[in-house]
Nucleic acid binder design. Structure first.
Lengths: 307, 307
DNA sequence: GGTTAGCATGCGAGTTACGCATGAGTGATG
DNA sequence: CATCACTCATGCGTAACTCGCATGCTAACC
């Protein structure tokens, strides 16, 4: 059944005449006659009584009319929704990001995106990179902000990776620490320090890097939450590593010292989408905002490292 | 846009593969491929990502899927409703009838019809014949039970008339009246009686008939409502004419005497529908129940007239 | 009673949709 | 690493459909 038949049917029902409907729709009267006839065959119902002056809906025609209008309406909203999806005035975009990306990078991009495309429903899920990738593959999120870890390289085959920035490491020192203000530090200078460690990947980084620098870090303080680590450092009980993405989120009574990039390799931060698949329009648009936010954040980090 | 495209789209979305959908729907894989392609052109959207093993909905495809299912559902209910209309398990029938027809004839037909076709929504409008015909023409009712009046013959051209029965006249007498039990009466025997008259056509009938019988009836009592007329007659204050259709509705303390049919011509009672137009299936079905009810009522009237 | 309005239909041309066969790309398998 | 299996896209020829045009027919209107 062609939906054009329904449109013709609706027009004829409204105008009460094949000829009038034909004129209104740019068809010939014979075309209208045949289309109505086709619809009558398809529904196995006589839809109009043919009168000497025009036509009139039968009971069956009246019954069908309501449904036909509903169907055409729904098709119209389908068109509208699709257009909204394309024009970024509708639809949704589900984003995932690792925790420190949510300190500044992702929130800035989201704020700018929402300002530009208020009608798009954005959602954000925080999680570690492996979880993000799993959700990406299962279709739970459309785009993930992830970071490389030397230990777990992700399969580049099934992903589209868009490089955003490189996340270097800073050392968080108590404000009274003697090394504060000495510019770029080498990891070896910190061999005797007491370290505050969290759990998971960041501490792998610390361990691997310090072993490479020739010492085994003294880890006596374990704190999972960022707020706790900061407290310990601010109290002068130890030092810790801070990803550059989190420098804006450190409390003012902590000193941050840039670390030489040969000592702790930078983590690359990517925006990842499923490879080979069509990205939702909002996704590609969001990438630009992520780029802009990444550029801003990178600038700020660079200026901080040079002080 | 062909709704077959939507069905194919839905099937492919469910099965995640063109080939599987083709097998399920009895098409070739190439046909599926082209139909999806057609739908994509029509919607100007990429609906599926083509993967090495099957396909996967894009964001646009997911957006369209909901609408497509709604449209197909609605088309299904349209088909169901049309079938229900035909099979008398749905739809409606709007009936009109003149007042005395609602005393026994129409209620019986309605009761029997409702018992046979409970799902059909019946409605009844009481009104005089001219109003019924007007509503018939305006499309407010589907079928009218009307009666002829010598003064106002209706235009038989635009109507389909189905004869139900002939409505003769009875005389309502006080139970103590000397003429009670004398069988068929001639109007001339009642020349000296005092008449209870209503308004409108019934009294035209009385006037015309009595003038023809050679007298002018003494009309001193006017009562519009049937209940009032009966009261006056039962109290012995006068006599009145009763259409045969109303004999069952007369109170027991009134005597009814059949009137010779040469004196007061029978009114023909018809079921009228708009001529040339397709009758709703419930309408033609209802006619049979009207016929049956008319036969019953006519039998009862005949047996009453013979007593 | 002629004219007009309106729907149905035969006809030819253009478009569309189907199946068949084939090609290209990717994952599974030995 | 080569081969196979599976999936979708596409060229081709045929069949069906839909269109406009012209015509026929019926009923209302002047």
């Amino acid at each position: 059944m062609d939906t054009a038949w329904l449109e013709v049917f609706r027009e004829v029902a409204r105008r009460g005449s094949f000829t009038a409907a034909a004129k209104a729709m740019g068809y010939t009267q014979s075309a209208i006659s045949r289309q109505v006839s086709s619809l009558e065959s398809a529904t196995d119902a006589l839809l109009f009584d043919r009168l000497p002056r025009g036509v009139r809906l039968t009971a069956e025609g009246h019954c069908l009319l309501g449904h036909a209008e509903a169907v055409l309406d729904r098709l119209g909203t389908a068109r509208t929704d699709l257009a909204a999806l394309r024009d970024l005035v509708g639809g949704r975009l589900r984003i995932g990001a690792f925790p420190t990306a949510d300190a500044a990078l992702v929130p800035r991009a989201i704020a700018a995106f929402q300002h530009a495309h208020a009608k798009v429903a954005l959602s954000l899920v925080e999680g570690l990179t492996p979880n993000q990738l799993a959700q990406l593959h299962s279709g739970d999120i459309d785009l993930a902000v992830v970071s490389t870890a030397p230990s777990r390289p992700f399969d580049t085959a099934s992903l589209d990776l868009h490089h955003l920035l490189d996340d270097t490491m800073f050392v968080a020192l108590p404000p009274t620490h003697p090394l504060v203000g000495h510019g770029v530090l080498r990891l070896a200078q910190l061999a005797e320090e007491r370290w505050v460690a969290g759990r998971g990947r960041v501490d792998d980084t610390l361990l691997a890097a310090s072993m490479r620098a020739g010492f085994r870090p003294r880890i006596e303080l374990i704190a999972a939450e960022w707020i706790a680590k900061q407290g310990l450092v601010a109290a002068g009980l130890g030092i810790t590593l801070v990803p550059s993405l989190a420098v804006d989120a450190t409390r003012p009574d902590i000193a941050l010292a840039p670390l030489h990039r040969d000592d702790v390799p930078a983590r690359a931060v990517y925006a990842a989408t499923l490879g080979g698949l069509t990205k939702p329009p909002a996704g590609t648009a969001f990438l630009e905002f992520l780029d802009a936010a990444a550029a801003e954040v990178a600038d700020e980090i660079a200026s901080r490292a040079n002080n």
